[in-house]
Design a binder for these strands. Structure first.
Lengths: 144, 144
DNA sequence: TGTAAATAGGATAAAATTATCCGAAATAAA
DNA sequence: TTTATTTCGGATAATTTTATCCTATTTACA
């Protein structure tokens, strides 16, 4: 469903958010360990998120990644996915047609409609805060 | 959502079904042209579908691909996707966790639940016949 | 001021996916 | 029986995605 890059990016963002609530900046090393992702690859993804101003980075000793506490609840999954994968997720036709719309639909256009819109809606409405809180309370997990 | 291979496979299957209703066998060349897919790559995918006994192939002059007319309505999208992409589509966790279930869910497990099940249901219930009929009646299209 | 700790970013490599090429095998028809 | 047509299958290539490595830059602190 998502690319590996996107999976890592989402998990990393949740972990950073979780720590940001406690004013704790986290290092690449700590992130990669916590979400079980390859360190160097994760670094590239975090750079993307920084460029898109979803997370913030601080260089040098005691540096690391953080998210403005007040922004966490307004960051939607959609923004993270878009920063990393672009608009691949919704943009395309299910069967790869260049033109696929109500007037010129691919064979599965109608069948996919509600699935795609539900996915879109989910990504646009779920925010980092709720995901981080579930981790904090032990309801969900970032690895294994 | 699907791999390119899967997209080509689904479109090819629909085109073959369409022709099989009129007892017409179609060649690789005709299929690739009709669904706008690379010929040699499409050949590999068709071989997969033949091995999984979803379509039938006849070698030699006047050979080509066909589907048993009586089977068309019972062939589900799910079978085609499975033959080509394996169980990647549902099997995995949305965030790539090795273990992801009700007891040990990833952060988006609940959020994805209905989307995944709707997708699963759609693939398991839509059959080749309905897709082929929509092409036949000009409601949907295989290319552009 | 020097050093250790971090992120940034370019170059490169590995793996997976997509795509092409070519000879072998099968088959219908001349 | 020969020839043209067509799928089969192995080898290879191109592209994209995933992953690694190394150096530069920044920063805190001794």
């Amino acid at each position: 469903m998502f690319s590996k890059a996107c999976e890592y990016g989402i998990k990393a963002s949740i972990f950073i958010a979780l720590n940001s609530y406690q004013e704790k900046r986290v290092s690449l090393k700590a992130i990669a360990k916590e979400v079980a992702s390859p360190e160097a690859f994760t670094a590239k993804i975090l750079q993307d998120l920084v460029r898109h101003e979803i997370i913030n980075s601080v260089k040098g000793a005691h540096g690391g990644f953080e998210i403005d506490k007040n922004k966490i609840s307004s960051i939607k999954l959609e923004q993270i996915v878009y920063a990393i994968d672009g608009n691949k997720i919704y943009s395309g036709c299910g069967l790869g047609l260049e033109i696929c719309n109500e007037l010129h639909p691919c064979p599965v256009h109608e069948k996919f409609k509600s699935i795609r819109s539900e996915l879109k809606n989910m990504l646009e409405t779920t925010n980092l805060e709720e995901l981080a809180l579930d981790i904090k309370s032990g309801i969900s997990f970032l690895k294994i």
